[in-house]
Design a protein around this nucleic acid. Structure first.
Lengths: 203, 203
DNA sequence: CCATTTTCGTACCATGCAGTACAAAATGAA
DNA sequence: TTCATTTTGTACTGCATGGTACGAAAATGG
């Protein structure tokens, strides 16, 4: 599905606000867990009829995939940008801490990482969403691995870990930091946690 | 609820195997997530009628609490024992790695930590289970904090982190290691991860 | 004004869920 | 044998879910 925009100008004008539904669904998935919010509930919260939502996204799997893609573009992309900024290792760690703090302070409800949450319940997801999860996970791990590799080459860090294992380590530390955020730990605690976790690479 | 054993010898003899149900439910909760296994499904898998299960555990909340308590006694207790063994910091880290490896190798299905899983979906749990989650979380955090405090006093470690924050750090690292296990990472990777994560305390 | 096109939402379907009413079955006691 | 006691499972209730059939509504084109 993923309906395309109206080519002609005929017919009843569309009132359904696709982006609004995606935002409501994203917020709901992140605060209550992607598998614990029903389509019915999303319809009520976004003020759309059920057939309206189904016409737009096909089915539950389609909605989840769309929301996850939106999460990538809006929430993950800024994270990627930091790793690919070319800054020094220590600068990047501090930039990460800043990003986490600001996203924690700017969010009304405590948020974790939607990709991690969906990944944890991958078995409950449909095919489209599961494939998207796999792609995004591979994408992020690659970015972490490249970052580690470049920092090693520049002599900014040293570690016993191979690059793939170091990438997994980074992935898990960021996931943990987001768990802390969801638990509403203070930004100071989150910062201390990240600085400590990344101190294993210092030389 | 939590029915007590028959005092008299009258009446129809009981055939329901309480412990078997608990084991089946625990296995199911750990492999599929505590909120994604229905009572119906547990009844089928353990060969018990639905009223039979309800007579034994009261309701879904009662079953979850019972399973979680059993998880504590059977799975968490050995972990606690390591931290309270009085060994040196480095010995305890190695003992942890051993415990993780053996539990990973001995388990047919990939397992994470039921307490973490339930904690993550605490909002979906009933009152009894939620209370038990809180108690167990406080219990484990206390054990980690005591361990850190003792190791500091003995001069085996040094860190900028306060004891409470260090305890949170330990908690998250163990949770991450269990996530790795659930993802079926090799025991070597899990070991490397833990050694690296705990290396932040070395002096 | 009418036909065509497109989007709209009410009302429905089958399924699975947590939880229960109730009578049959199985024992010891009298 | 019969009664009291206890455990058993079949068959049900009411509700929420994912998903859809279908006709009304709202626009443009002729």
């Amino acid at each position: 599905m993923d309906t395309q925009k109206n080519p002609t100008t005929r017919g009843r004008p569309k009132t359904l606000d696709r982006d609004h539904i995606i935002e409501i669904a994203k917020e709901s998935f992140m605060s209550e867990g992607p598998t614990h919010v029903s389509i019915n509930e999303i319809c009520k919260r976004s003020g759309v009829s059920k057939p309206g939502l189904y016409r737009e996204f096909g089915n539950e799997d389609g909605l989840r995939r769309t929301v996850l893609r939106s999460y990538r573009d809006e929430n993950l992309e800024p994270l990627y940008a930091i790793f690919q900024s070319g800054g020094q290792f220590s600068e990047i760690v501090e930039a990460l801490i800043d990003l986490f703090r600001s996203s924690q302070l700017n969010s009304p409800t405590p948020k974790g990482c939607l990709l991690q949450d969906m990944s944890a319940s991958r078995g409950q997801m449909g095919e489209l969403t599961a494939d998207t999860i796999d792609m995004l996970r591979a994408e992020t791990i690659d970015i972490y691995e490249d970052w580690i590799a470049r920092a090693k080459e520049k002599g900014e860090i040293s570690t016993d870990l191979s690059n793939p294992v170091a990438a997994i380590y980074v992935d898990l530390q960021l996931a943990s930091a987001m768990v802390l955020m969801k638990r509403q730990a203070s930004p100071e605690t989150v910062g201390k946690f990240l600085r400590t976790a990344f101190s294993v690479f210092s030389n």
